[in-house]
Design a protein around this nucleic acid. Structure first.
Length: 448
DNA sequence: GGCGTTACGGTTGAC
DNA sequence: CTGTCAACCGTAACG
């Protein structure tokens, strides 16, 4: 991305925003008229109360900007242009010239890089510009990392884990059979008292009533879950299989049993790794991420970096690391499918096999934008800052993060650091489980 | 100028 | 198979 005529990223951004705002008939960003800026901020909580202008453009945020915006002619950052285009490529360019896929997380490599740079003392604003990721995003990722120790995105999609598991139903039935006059609330209390459920996953009284009505009522025939077989798993990994990293692990070679979750250290505690990054917990493997980024020119942001429109590259980069055997354990069918689907790619990937974590994105959504771990993000423009004077070269830390640096960056978090879950750690929940980190590497917060 | 916060449009996956 | 829902995402903008 080249900023027009000597404009720095910021100036360019502002001017772009201004122009767009003008087009939208309002002020925007730093160029907002005083009355906008001075406007009392509505109480948070009501999004509409913010009174923001309706954004008519597609894409995230309130950008009143044309989606192709700042990067006319930019080879990689193609926009949706119709169904056909959507099939092949999509992605948008933010005001910094970075490429992103609306609604999808940044690639792990970028996330890692953000944390890495932050650990080196680079200011978030500089990271934002360097990686061309919005500062809000940088802030968010760093905040999350500080909170959970994980660089990985949360679990996307899915529903809350069921609380009325077969086991719970069975207990309810037992209670009801033992005391036909029992109230639902009493059942609820007993579920808690007996440890069948905890406060986070105990069914509501109404749920219990529904169970009594629907399942226990027709008690005669056992439900599908009660045929003596092992009940369907409590959604031990109820969320996003895509965030699993079913690499063979020395500890859990099959990847089938992902061990403890949700802050409840399993028998193995840290030893049982719910998920692992590729074998890549080693420093050298982590370093491999960088190696790859360097190879792709991503970190250098070199002009020569070709922006591959093939999303498959990136997807496969992140997936070639684990052999099909590990995916065949039945936990990660989509991942397996993705492996199959994307194995054809990428010659260049051999160098990084085993280095990168499985991509958190389903291959299906990885069309083309993140064609390389960071290359797609670092727009093929001049490195930031344009002067080539890397801010990362500053104090004590070279731009090149050596393995030790990165290892330090990634391990400085105490593995057993207290986790502040944003959500109750229900067994089926998806609370981040940084307790499961290995070598200080964050384990995906999401489960599947 | 930096950064935390939040509305927004979007994606995802279980139900 | 489709729609709904609730989670998450990153961006842009506000303060």
């Amino acid at each position: 991305m080249k900023f027009p005529l000597g404009l720095g990223a910021r100036e360019w951004r502002v001017s772009w925003a201004r122009a767009a705002a003008a087009a939208a008939g309002r002020g925007a960003g730093g160029g907002a008229p005083a009355q906008h800026r001075a406007r009392p901020r509505p109480r948070p909580g009501s999004r509409l109360a913010r009174g923001r202008p309706l954004c008519l453009s597609r894409g995230g945020g309130c950008r009143a900007l044309p989606s192709r915006g700042p990067s006319p002619g930019r080879p990689g950052a193609r926009q949706l242009a119709g169904p056909r285009a959507m099939e092949q490529t999509y992605g948008e360019v933010n005001q910094l010239g970075g490429v992103f896929v609306n609604g999808r997380p940044l690639p792990n490599a970028i996330r890692l890089r953000i944390v890495e740079l932050a650990q080196l003392g680079i200011r978030p604003c500089d990271i934002s510009r360097q990686l061309r990721v919005s500062h809000g995003c940088v802030s968010k990722i760093l905040a999350r990392y500080n909170e959970t120790g994980s660089i990985l995105p949360g679990a996307i999609g899915g529903s809350k884990p069921r609380v009325t598991t077969p086991n719970v139903v069975k207990h309810i039935r037992d209670y009801k059979q033992g005391d036909p006059g029992i109230f639902a609330w009493e059942i609820r209390d007993r579920l808690l008292a007996d440890g069948v459920c905890d406060k986070y996953n105990v069914p509501s009284v109404s749920s219990i009533s529904r169970i009594l009505r629907n399942k226990i009522g027709s008690l005669a025939q056992p439900g599908p879950y009660e045929t003596g077989k092992q009940p369907p798993p409590q959604p031990a990994l109820p969320y996003n299989h895509i965030y699993q990293y079913p690499y063979p692990s020395p500890v859990s070679p099959t990847g089938a049993k992902m061990g403890s979750h949700h802050g409840v250290p399993g028998a193995a505690g840290h030893v049982s790794i719910p998920r692992s990054w590729p074998s890549a917990h080693s420093v050298s493997n982590i370093l491999g991420i960088r190696t790859f980024m360097e190879q792709t020119g991503a970190l250098a942001g070199s002009e020569g970096t070709t922006y591959s429109p093939k999303m498959e590259d990136w997807a496969s980069v992140n997936r070639t690391a684990f052999p099909a055997t590990s995916a065949v354990n039945g936990l990660d069918k989509p991942a397996l499918e993705a492996d199959i689907k994307y194995t054809q790619s990428a010659s260049s990937l051999s160098a990084v096999g085993g280095f990168l974590p499985a991509c958190a994105y389903p291959a299906s959504s990885q069309h083309s934008v993140y064609s390389s771990p960071a290359g797609g993000y670092l727009a093929p423009g001049p490195p930031w800052p344009p002067t080539q004077a890397s801010p990362l070269a500053a104090p004590g830390a070279s731009l090149t993060v050596h393995s030790g640096d990165l290892a330090a960056a990634m391990t400085f978090k105490h593995p057993s650091r207290e986790v502040v879950d944003r959500k109750p750690p229900s067994p089926g929940g998806k609370a981040p489980d940084s307790l499961s980190s290995l070598h200080g590497l964050p384990i995906p917060a999401s489960t599947s």
